[in-house]
């Protein structure tokens, strides 16, 4: 009984929430609030007739391209900032401001510059995902425990050895966590781009079904992208825990 308690409670909690959704939909609380069953049915219809797959092919394109660019550039810039005081002074403030500022406000400007195509959408994903990747990477590099760097020097490591064999591996858990947060922000960017710039992919399903008042399909599309993001990020987190199991411990202070 105790062993299954947490599963049972998760199930119970899902049952309560989805059940109240169903009841609220049946009353109905609003003309535009479909029941859970209607939404799930619409989801299967969209999935089985292939609409969903085509849509995700479209939606994931700017997301994947944008996240790849951000990861590549972001880790590069982050390492430079972390390793050099000059670049830290020069670039850190820019990314700190980007991190706290509502960058979504730049979207209308990006549309003016790059039009309404893929480039703009990739850009939106990049400006959302990049700051957290840069700041995590540079912070991780800077916070490498001083004693293992000193150890590398005492045992005659070259600068290159110390960066490649000590600083990078020591920083990689935090860099990876930064990538995960970057992906999370990238999802926001991709969805925002589709809702604000041009409705393609999942954004198109959402906008179109809203315009014809097919609310179950609209809710199904929204639910699917939220679930996709949550599941994907969860998987990333598990990979992270698996890869870096134990490596955050092992210092004398623990």
């Amino acid at each position: 009984m105790i062993r299954y308690r947490s599963y049972l409670l998760t199930f119970l909690s899902a049952f309560i929430v989805l059940g109240s959704w169903e009841i609220a939909g049946r009353i109905p609380v609003s003309y535009s609030f479909p029941t859970f069953v209607e939404t799930i049915t619409a989801f299967w219809v969209l999935l089985l007739d292939g609409t969903m797959f085509v849509a995700y092919g479209e939606t994931l394109k700017p997301l994947v391209v944008g996240v790849l660019i951000s990861a590549f550039l972001g880790i590069g810039i982050g390492l430079t900032i972390g390793l050099s005081k000059k670049f830290d002074w020069l670039l850190s403030p820019v990314f700190v401001v980007m991190q706290t500022a509502p960058l979504a406000a730049l979207i209308p400007l990006l549309v003016m510059i790059y039009g309404i195509g893929l480039t703009s959408k990739v850009f939106v994903v990049c400006i959302m995902a990049m700051p957290v990747i840069v700041l995590n990477t540079s912070g991780a590099v800077r916070n490498t425990p001083a004693s293992i760097i000193e150890m590398g020097q005492a045992f005659l490591g070259t600068k290159r050895d110390i960066i490649l064999k000590i600083i990078l591996p020591a920083a990689s858990p935090i860099i990876f966590a930064g990538l995960r947060l970057g992906v999370s922000a990238g999802f926001i960017g991709a969805i925002l781009a589709e809702l604000k710039i041009t409705p393609t992919g999942v954004g198109d399903i959402i906008s179109y079904s809203r315009s014809i008042a097919d609310y179950p399909s609209m809710y199904a599309a929204i639910m699917s992208i939220i679930l996709l993001a949550v599941i994907f990020l969860n998987v990333l987190e598990r990979i992270e825990n698996f890869l870096f199991k134990g490596t955050r411990q092992g210092y004398a202070s623990e």
Binding site: S6, L9, S13, A14, S32, A190, L192, Y219, I226
Partner: peptide
Amino acid sequence: DELLLPWVNMFLSAPLTALVPVLMVL
């Protein structure tokens, strides 16, 4: 805690932007 935590964690990492259209129709 056990009843709510899965939902809190889910919404914490979910792209909430996608919910804006729902809020708009509601």
